[in-house]
Simulated scan of single mutants.
Amino acid sequence: MTLNILFFSITIKRRKISLEEADHQEMVKKLYEENKDRQMSMRYFM
């Protein structure tokens, strides 16, 4: 009788972001929301 066992070990480490990266992500999110609002307002005018 042969018993084959395979084990995996997964480590998840939280990534720390820099202040510049956090500012960039916030700006991208703000621009995305503005464009989304603009698209919605254009849709209602048509």
Rank of each mutant, 00 (worst) to 15 (best):
8 F>S: 14
12 I>F: 13
31 L>W: 04
2 T>N: 10
35 N>F: 08
2 T>C: 12
3 L>D: 13
6 L>G: 10
9 S>G: 08
43 R>M: 00
21 E>K: 08
38 R>K: 15
2 T>I: 13
17 I>D: 00
27 M>S: 03
45 F>M: 11
45 F>R: 02
42 M>C: 12
31 L>A: 12
36 K>W: 09
19 L>I: 15
34 E>G: 01
23 D>F: 14
36 K>H: 06
25 Q>L: 12
44 Y>W: 05
20 E>I: 08
9 S>H: 12
46 M>R: 03
9 S>Q: 04
10 I>Q: 05
36 K>T: 09
43 R>H: 03
16 K>G: 15
31 L>H: 04
35 N>K: 05
21 E>R: 04
7 F>G: 09
25 Q>P: 04
27 M>Y: 03
4 N>D: 09
42 M>I: 07
45 F>K: 06
8 F>P: 07
36 K>D: 05
3 L>G: 12
5 I>E: 12
36 K>V: 06
45 F>W: 10
11 T>C: 14
37 D>A: 05
18 S>I: 01
8 F>K: 09
18 S>A: 02
41 S>A: 01
7 F>I: 14
44 Y>L: 00
25 Q>N: 08
25 Q>Y: 04
21 E>A: 11
8 F>G: 12
31 L>F: 07
45 F>T: 03
44 Y>P: 00
34 E>W: 09
13 K>L: 13
9 S>I: 07
21 E>L: 11
36 K>F: 07
2 T>G: 08
14 R>M: 06
31 L>P: 06
36 K>L: 14
39 Q>A: 06
33 E>I: 10
25 Q>T: 03
10 I>A: 09
4 N>W: 04
46 M>N: 10
15 R>L: 13
18 S>W: 02
37 D>M: 06
30 K>V: 07
46 M>K: 01
4 N>M: 05
21 E>M: 12
29 K>E: 14
20 E>D: 07
11 T>E: 14
40 M>N: 01
2 T>F: 15
28 V>F: 02
40 M>Y: 02
1 M>K: 01
44 Y>H: 03
17 I>Q: 02
20 E>L: 09
23 D>K: 15
39 Q>V: 06
14 R>N: 03
30 K>F: 10
21 E>G: 03
28 V>W: 00
46 M>T: 09
9 S>C: 08
13 K>E: 15
32 Y>G: 11
35 N>C: 06
39 Q>R: 11
38 R>H: 09
43 R>W: 00
22 A>H: 08
21 E>P: 02
35 N>M: 05
27 M>Q: 05
15 R>V: 03
7 F>W: 09
34 E>T: 01
35 N>L: 11
7 F>M: 13
16 K>P: 11
5 I>G: 08
